[in-house]
């Protein structure tokens, strides 16, 4: 049984997912967006420590990421939330001297196990970054890039994937007639939705978003937030954000990170109205010195 309210899902707990079929986890004490419901674990971190050389950036992180929910990670700069996000698809592998301990599983599979291909993992766990980073090629080719790399050659199938992805990213209506145009000609908000469509094109299981709207204007930000809310019908999303109102608006669960530790995790409604820990309270009230 997971007691989300007091974080009793620590290292001694039995892993909930050992197979590809994710386990159902009841959350009786937590009303998510005012509705009690059973949750399914999609990703899980157990006793995760992370080091940049001698510096320990993450300390004993234990967290469940629930299926088709938005989990927001908040905390001050340098608290480890982005580092943790990047452990989920091994983006930290690219950093020299980086080392991870503990277990990180997606659908019960350890992402750091020998034989797990990082490129395959990143197909399953896609990522959207702070600044839109479209490739310098056409809108169509941006979206088709991933499926092509993974072997899709059929033009008709690629066209269908591109349309589906652009529709899912709420960009289709704006670009359907100009798919041959350079993606760099799109506005910042459109570019970010294009990047989301590019991630969706390879049908990931989890989508990581590292401050996806922080470089966008308010209107584009709201569009991205609406999009996230739509996408959670089909995808599991982990969102790192400095914007607490954004976390409060879109996420179902929130984890508060501080100095490399996850101080509190719970239903977003509860974290933003009645947090358990004084440090969480101080941070979300903006009383953090």
């Amino acid at each position: 049984m997971i007691k989300l309210e007091n974080m009793e899902f620590n290292g001694q707990q039995q892993a909930q997912t050992k197979t590809m079929a994710a386990a159902a986890v009841p959350t009786p004490d937590v009303a998510v967006r005012s509705q009690k419901r059973e949750e399914t674990v999609r990703a899980e971190a157990k006793d995760v420590n992370f080091f940049y050389g001698d510096f320990q950036a993450l300390k004993n992180i234990n967290i469940h990421v629930f299926d088709r929910r938005i989990t927001a990670l908040i905390g001050p700069s340098g608290c480890g939330k982005s580092t943790f996000l990047r452990t989920l698809n091994r983006m930290n592998d690219l950093i020299e001297g980086a080392r991870v301990e503990g277990s990180i599983t997606i659908d019960g599979q350890d992402v750091n196990a020998p034989g797990v291909d990082a490129a395959d993992l990143r197909k399953r766990v896609g990522m959207v970054f702070q600044r839109p980073n479209p490739f310098p090629m056409s809108i169509f080719d941006n979206i088709a890039y991933g499926p092509r790399i993974h072997g899709e050659k059929n033009k008709k199938a690629l066209g269908e994937i591109v349309e589906r992805s652009l529709r899912q990213a709420a960009l289709w209506d704006e670009v359907k007639d100009v798919q041959k145009r350079s993606a760099l000609a799109l506005s910042g908000g459109q570019q970010q939705r294009l990047c989301i469509a590019r991630v969706l094109a390879v049908e990931p299981e989890v989508v990581l978003m590292d401050e996806p709207a922080s470089a966008l204007d308010p209107n584009s930000t709201y569009r991205i937030e609406e999009l996230m809310t739509e996408l959670k019908n089909d995808y599991t999303i982990v969102l790192v954000t400095h914007n607490m109102q954004q976390a409060a608006r879109v996420s179902d669960y929130t984890g508060f990170f501080l100095r490399g530790e996850m101080k509190e995790f719970g239903a977003t409604d509860k974290i933003f109205t009645t947090p358990e820990q004084k440090e969480t309270e101080d941070y979300i009230r903006g009383r953090f010195g």
Binding site: Q245, T273, T274, P275, R285
Partner: peptide, 9 residues
């Protein structure tokens, strides 16, 4: 001010 937690309450 977008108050949170005890400020909001």
């Amino acid at each position: 001010q977008q108050p949170m937690a005890s400020d909001l309450r």
